[in-house]
Structure formats: structure tokens, C-alpha cells
Write a protein that binds this DNA or RNA. Sequence first.
DNA 1: CCTGGTGTACTATTTACCTATAACAGTGGT
DNA 2: ACCACTGTTATAGGTAAATAGTACACCAGG
Lengths: 126, 126
Amino acid sequence: MSFDTRIPIYLQIMERIKKDIVSGKLKGGDKMPSVRAFAKELQVNVNTVQRVYQELEREKILYSQRGIGSFVTSNEAIVEQIKEEMARELLGNFVRGMRELGFSKERTLTALQAYMEGEQDGSVKG
Amino acid sequence: MSFDTRIPIYLQIMERIKKDIVSGKLKGGDKMPSVRAFAKELQVNVNTVQRVYQELEREKILYSQRGIGSFVTSNEAIVEQIKEEMARELLGNFVRGMRELGFSKERTLTALQAYMEGEQDGSVKG
DNA sequence: CCTGGTGTACTATTTACCTATAACAGTGGT
DNA sequence: ACCACTGTTATAGGTAAATAGTACACCAGG
């Protein structure tokens, strides 16, 4: 995994984990890698992973048990809530951003359709 | 203007200016506020504004003249190029993000339509 | 000429993030 | 009891961003 130097690493890892949970790659009850193993895998310090798990636990997305490990929540309502939050944020950022660039709703919609049809083209002139 | 503490302030100010240029709020030849005035207005340090102008000059979006001021480029081609870049980035982030959340292209499109129709509703269940 | 406004440059300090390293605390298997 | 694994906490150091403050360079108007 590579990181965007402009954004704190721990936030990027959190996003990645949340996406994996929301999309189903990680399921309720799944055991996360140990802080040390994950740190090694991500080429990152143990403290950074620790912070990730801590923050995600604060958000009720993970729970950690000393001596045992960290696990994905089995509370589907929370997962669904996170999914809606993340989708709403994506939608909001996108719509607001396009509006700020001067795109109407219609143009935004057609631009998205064009972009999806051919990401090899991707022309967004206008 | 308020700032997201997770992202460098100078980048946020740059984005804001670029959006204003692309959308036509700022036009070619327009004089930007002086670094000191802008810093005061944004409740930010002079050095931060200076960095903003410097970076935007590097991107050929502004040009600065010592003793006179900083001005928006009159090169429409550059403005158009920036607009396409920014739109493509928004589209890419959005589409990739939704895909990572497990949304198909069709669901992404319908979610966007639903979001735009009623931002008072904004349900994105699925 | 000089004054006020402009961009530009430099130093020093603070803060958040990341790192390295070590130690402490709890669990489970042998 | 021991040991290997787990999460957790603590200390110290490095870097980038933002800050405050100062100074320099340039231009236009009175």
C-alpha cells in the first residue's frame, strides 16, 4: 500500500479498512492482523497501526481485546451506517465540487455517464 | 473560510482559488488581494498566502509582479485545462470511491440521481 | 525624493504526524 | 510455570506545515 503524503497515514489506513468492511471484503467477527504484523505488512510503525485500531474502536467499527486481537464488529447496523456515511460524503464532495467548477446538475450527470462509459476516454469538456 | 485541519491550509486555499477561476468568479486579468490583505481576510499567516501565490504561479494560473500585485492569468487554454483536470479528478475519486464501497456503476448513477433530486432526502441505502 | 503598498526572503518557534524503541499487561497453549 | 502471542503505554527524535516577526526589493503617486 502506498500513501498520499498530504494526508495522515493513519487516516488512509482507516479509510481502507472501512471500505473493506463496507464492501464485504472484511466480515463481522473477522480477526484483523495484529498491530505488529499489520505494521510490518504496511511498512509502517506499530504506533500508527495502534492509532488506527484505537480510532476505529472509538467508531465502534472494531473491538480489541488485550492478549487476543482486534476484530471487525458484528453489528450490521453500524456497518450499514458507515456505508451510508461514506457514500453520502462521496456524493456530497462530488456534487459540490462539480457545482463549484460551474457544472450544472445535468452536465454533472452526463459527465459521470461519459466517464463511466469509457474511462479510456474520459473527456469532460464544457 | 474554515479549514480542514487534516489538509494543509495552503492547498485548500489553492483549490478555492482555482475553483473560482474555473467557474468564472475570477476572470483573466483580475487582481488578487495582496498577500497581507488576503492573509488578514483568511485569518492566516502571510507566508501561507505567499506560498499559495507561489504555487499557483508555478502552475501558470497566476502571475505576480513585485511592487504591483498578483493577477489571474488571461490564458484561457490554461483555465480550460485546469477545469478538465479538476473535473477528471472529481469524477475519478467519486467513481473509484463508490466502487470501493461496493456500488456498481448502475447503483452509482442512481445514487447520484437520487442525491441530486432531493438533497433533503439523500438516502443511499444499498 | 519619499512614502506606502506590493511581492519576496529569512529565521525561529510550535504543533501534528510518524518513527524507533522499549516496557507493561493480558491470553492461551505447552 | 513458562513462553509466545496479543493489545497498550511511554519516551525520544525527526520532519513538514503553520505561525510570528523582521527585513529586503520593487513600483507608483504625491
